[in-house]
Design a protein around this nucleic acid. Structure first.
Lengths: 189, 189
DNA sequence: GTCTATAAGATGATAGAC
DNA sequence: GTCTATCATCTTATAGAC
């Protein structure tokens, strides 16, 4: 159950942290080396190029995030609880040292990436939408069918909300804003 | 009425373009120099440091954007038309060469900036919220009062929407998504 | 104002010893 | 696997000629 503490994992952890905080163009091999106490050259042993490194970080992030969504799905039965946990998942990132979702940052920096990486970033968003749509479908089955719109479209709106809310929180520096906004967006359902 | 085509303006234009596309950490003086056909050193004559340059870009962007909002306010009487124009304003940026709102990008990169710049970024968001709230107030006066929530909170949600929608469009590369999402978010009002 | 020249340090990356 | 040493290039920034 313990996280593998190999150098490889430390590099991926540090890389993810730095991208979430400063962006792909805002960190260097030297930064990673300093964080985990090795030399720059050692990183190249695992990831010859920066793009290979970022791609590995991205793919692991997507996998972990998808797993978190699956856990939420298992843990709760009430769709509303699932949605609240979804927003809490994003909140956890914001709580910790000025970070945002890795894919939010990388979507902003999309012009710096080749096609394959762009595809992985978009995959993250699609997976989020898909998960949300599934939960909204469960919710609709319980509720008076209050919304007639496509649940796929509704999911996209929820995703734009959580993506944009992160930017507002970062601009203001006030995390508490997030909770109020989540409350309000849940009321619209 | 013509835009002043001084070197200063060219520098600000190129700087804004590059930040909107690649981010603050994703461009250099050399990039600006190449775009407008001068030498790097000439840019330092106007902006000794990169932070002074980005600050000037940011302040002009905020001023121009606020002016655009004012123009919309003057041009339309129907609050719904005003909102549609608001979203169209953001769309214009997306249409053009993989760019997003300057302050969306800079909010994502907030950890790279000192306090004064952060304040300017947040000012942009607050101005957006204020403008939206004003329009929503006009709308409420016309409508059956359908929503009971605070219009300030409603404005924030609309802002999170447009901020997040940009990231989704960038991730997918499909601008048409934006129009559908705008349609759907307007239905929630 | 714009240029050439140059500095001082950072950056991504490689070669080869241990 | 991790290190030292080194590379070519890029980065922000300054000094001084024109």
């Amino acid at each position: 159950m313990d996280k593998n503490n190999s150098t490889l994992d430390k590099i991926l952890d540090a890389g993810r942290h730095l991208i979430q905080k400063y962006g792909y163009n805002g960190f260097s091999y030297a930064d990673i080396a300093e964080i985990i106490g090795i030399k720059k050259a050692s990183i190249h042993y695992y990831f010859p190029s920066k793009q290979e490194l970022v791609r590995a970080v991205l793919q692991r992030y997507n996998k972990d995030f998808l797993n978190d969504l699956y856990q939420i799905e298992q843990q709760f039965t009430d769709p509303l609880d699932k949605l609240k946990s979804f927003f809490l998942l994003y909140r956890k990132t914001l709580e910790n040292d000025e970070k945002i979702c890795l894919c939010s940052m990388m979507a902003a920096e999309i012009s710096s990436f080749p096609k394959e990486i762009r595809t992985d970033i978009n995959r993250f968003f699609l997976d989020n939408e898909e998960w949300l749509e599934k939960v909204l479908t469960q919710k609709k089955a319980l509720d008076v069918p209050s919304f007639s719109d496509s649940l796929a479209e509704q999911s996209k709106l929820l995703l734009t909300f959580v993506q944009g809310a992160q930017l507002l929180v970062r601009a203001s520096g006030e995390l508490e804003q997030y909770d109020t906004m989540v409350e309000n967006v849940l009321k619209t359902l």
